[in-house]
Design a protein around this nucleic acid. Structure first.
Length: 237
DNA sequence: AACCTCATCAACCGCCGCCCC
DNA sequence: TGGGGCGGCGGTTGATGAGGT
């Protein structure tokens, strides 16, 4: 005998929530003791699945949700957390007050992920993306440099990838700047007199890598970590 | 103005782990 | 102790709007 479905699919409404449904759910949540989500729709007079109610409340109606754009600090925190936690969105949400796991997941997939790729960083391993040719050259070099220990996940990915820590699978897509305009998409700046260090999307030489607590700059051709931004008191946007 | 493409994000689906009987 | 119920999580989808042609 299979598992009982979470709700009667013929009786539940799906799709976007109406103002009236939101009002009913909010009113119920504010005026009643917590109860089982499965039982809530009937008690609140909603033709919705309990899971749907939970999701709507958690992601949209719950008080103290921030909504709106993510700040730079929040984005940096998300990147750092992703480097150490992977796709554990709920764990990240716990570290970002007012943000939901769904919101963080969406923001990662639609904004941060793409930007990291543009910057030459693999969004999965948080290691620099380099061209296969460069990877071969790097492998042939006698001076081997291990990547920074950005996270346990990165180590796992590295160790399972043919003994080379470099993810070359996406390199040709992401480091060739020949078909793109030369626009600056990031910038490092120093706390003292180092000045700004622009990273543009055509840059074949440098890549930024999240190391779990901040960023480091990598030499793409030689697969070498050049310096840790935090060590030099540098910031990044 | 009409159509097409792409980006965004709310919502759904299915799986997993915990808890209770 | 095992099985079922439940909430929670992460991946995915699809509706919608914006921008481009």
């Amino acid at each position: 005998m299979g598992r009982q479905p979470c709700c009667d699919k013929h009786m539940v409404k799906k799709g976007p929530w109406t103002v009236e449904e939101d009002r009913k759910l909010v009113q119920f949540m504010f005026t009643n003791q917590p109860c089982r989500w499965r039982a809530l729709p009937k008690l609140a007079g909603l033709a919705r699945c309990g899971k749907s109610c939970r999701l709507r409340w958690k992601n949209y109606l719950q008080p103290d949700l921030k909504r709106g754009c993510f700040s730079q600090a929040e984005e940096h925190l998300i990147i750092d957390l992703h480097a150490s936690l992977g796709n554990r969105w709920s764990k990240m949400a716990a570290r970002l007050p007012g943000r939901t796991d769904n919101e963080i997941k969406n923001h990662w997939n639609t904004h941060i992920k793409k930007r990291l790729i543009k910057l030459g960083i693999d969004p999965v391993t948080h290691q620099p993306l380099i061209k296969p040719a460069n990877a071969a050259a790097a492998a042939a070099q006698t001076t081997t440099v291990d990547p920074p220990p950005s996270s346990a996940e990165a180590h796992t990915a590295a160790s399972t990838e043919n003994s080379t820590p470099i993810n070359t699978g996406h390199g040709s897509d992401c480091t060739s700047g020949t078909d793109r305009g030369a626009s600056m998409i990031g910038c490092l700046w120093g706390a003292e007199d180092e000045g700004a260090f622009p990273i543009d999307e055509d840059d074949e030489l440098w890549a930024l890598s999240s190391n779990g607590s901040g960023f480091s700059v990598w030499d793409r051709d030689n697969c070498m970590e050049m310096f840790d931004c935090d060590d030099l008191g540098m910031n990044y946007w």
